[in-house]
C-alpha cells in the first residue's frame, strides 16, 4: 500500500529544548495508526506539526493524495485538538455549519452534513443549545464532528478519549471504528488499550523519539516472550527462595518484588519443571503459579520505563 502520510526526520525545538527528535514514520492509506506515549512524550507537539499549526524546526511532512504529494495539507485533514475549544456563544449546529463552510462545503452541503453529523455523534437533540453549556464529552463529540464534516482523507486526533468517562470513551471508540472504514486515522493516546481496540499500526514515542513502531499483530508476535508469574507465601523460606530464582540459568530477566515475581524465560515448560522441583526441595508455599506470554502492556511499560 502507498503511504498517505510520510514523515521524515521531524524535529521541534523550543528555545534550546528539543521536544521532538527527528522522528520518521509513514501511515498507509486506509490504516489506523496510534501514536502512543506517556505524558510529555511529544505527542501533541508532533500532531500540531502534522496539522500545520506548528512549524517544524527540521524535517518534512508529506501528504500524498492520488499518489502525488500536496502542497497544502489542510483541505485533506480533519483535526481534533487535545482539548477542543469552541465559541461558547454559538450553538453546536452553528459551529458545525461554520466549520463545514470554512472547509469548503457549499452552504447547502454544509447544512446537510451538519444535520447528519450531529446525529452521528449523538448530539441531534442538543444542536440548538449554546456550546457554552455543553459537557466535556459533548464538546469532544462536537470536535469529532467538525473534524469529519468535510470528509478528510486523514483524520488526526489528539487524545480523543482521554478526557471521557468509560461510556463516552466507548461511544467515541465505536464511532472511530466506523469511520476508519472510510478514512485513514492517526490518533494519539497514552492508553495502550485504546490503541489495541481500533488500530493496526502503533508508534510508541518516548521523550521525543520513536521507541517502537510497526504493525500491531507483528509487534505482538515479535516481542511476546514466555513469562512465568508467581506469588509465594509470606514466610521466610519462601521469600528467600523467591529472591534467589533470578540467578537460575534459564531465567532471562526477573522482576521480583516482595512475594511476587515475574520471570522472562527461554522455555516455559522446562522452566516450570525446574522451578517446581526446586520449590518442593525448599519447602516453598505457592499462592499462584502462572505461565504464559508477555502482553503488549508489558512491552509498553518496559518501553516507557526504560
Amino acid at each position: 500500500m502507498t503511504p498517505l502520510l510520510q514523515v521524515d526526520g521531524l524535529t521541534k525545538r523550543f528555545k534550546e529544548r528539543t521536544v521532538v527528535k527527528g522522528i520518521s514514520f509513514s501511515v498507509a492509506e486506509g490504516s489506523c495508526a496510534a501514536l502512543l506515549g506517556p505524558n510529555g512524550a511529544g505527542k501533541t507537539t508532533t500532531i500540531s506539526m502534522l496539522a500545520g499549526l506548528l512549524q517544524p524546526t527540521e524535517g518534512s511532512i508529506q501528504l500524498r493524495v492520488g499518489g502525488k504529494p500536496v502542497l497544502d495539507r489542510r483541505p485533506y485533514i480533519g483535526y481534533l485538538p487535545q482539548m477542543p475549544v469552541f465559541y461558547p456563544w454559538m450553538s453546536g449546529k452553528e459551529f458545525l455549519n461554520y466549520a463545514g463552510e470554512l472547509a469548503g462545503l457549499t452552504t447547502r452541503e454544509a447544512a446537510l452534513k451538519t444535520g447528519e453529523w450531529l446525529e452521528a455523534v449523538g448530539l441531534g437533540a442538543d444542536g440548538q443549545r449554546k456550546i457554552g453549556g455543553y459537557s466535556g464529552g459533548m464538546k469532544q463529540r462536537l470536535g469529532l464532528a467538525q473534524a469529519l464534516i468535510h470528509r478528510p482523507k486523514l483524520l488526526i486526533l489528539d487524545e480523543p478519549v482521554s478526557a471521557l468517562d468509560p461510556a463516552g470513551r466507548k461511544d467515541v471508540l465505536s464511532l472511530l471504528q466506523r469511520i476508519r472504514r472510510e478514512t485513514t486515522v492517526l490518533f494519539s493516546t497514552h492508553v495502550l488499550h485504546d490503541a489495541e481496540e481500533i488500530c493496526d499500526e502503533i508508534l510508541m514515542i518516548k521523550a521525543g523519539e520513536i521507541a517502537l513502531q510497526g504493525n500491531l499483530e507483528h509487534i505482538r508476535r515479535e516481542y511476546s516472550e514466555p513469562v512465568i508469574r508467581m506469588e509465594v507465601g509470606g514466610e521466610k523460606a519462601s521469600q528467600d527462595w523467591l529472591a534467589s530464582v533470578g540467578n537460575k540459568a534459564f531465567v532471562l530477566q526477573a522482576e521480583i518484588a516482595g512475594t511476587r515475581a515475574e520471570l522472562t524465560v527461554a522455555d516455559v515448560e522446562q522452566a516450570s519443571h525446574e522451578l517446581m522441583e526446586d520449590a518442593v526441595a525448599h519447602h516453598v508455599i505457592f499462592r499462584k503459579f502462572e505461565s504464559g506470554q508477555s502482553t503488549l502492556e508489558d512491552l509498553f511499560m518496559k518501553v516507557v520505563q526504560a
Binding site: A51, G52, L53, P81
Partner: peptide, 13 residues
C-alpha cells in the same frame, strides 16, 4: 488564547 484558533486554522482558511 482560548484555543479555538487551533480548529479554525487546521482548516484550509
Amino acid at each position: 488564547q482560548s484555543g479555538v484558533s487551533q480548529m479554525i486554522f487546521s482548516k484550509p482558511v
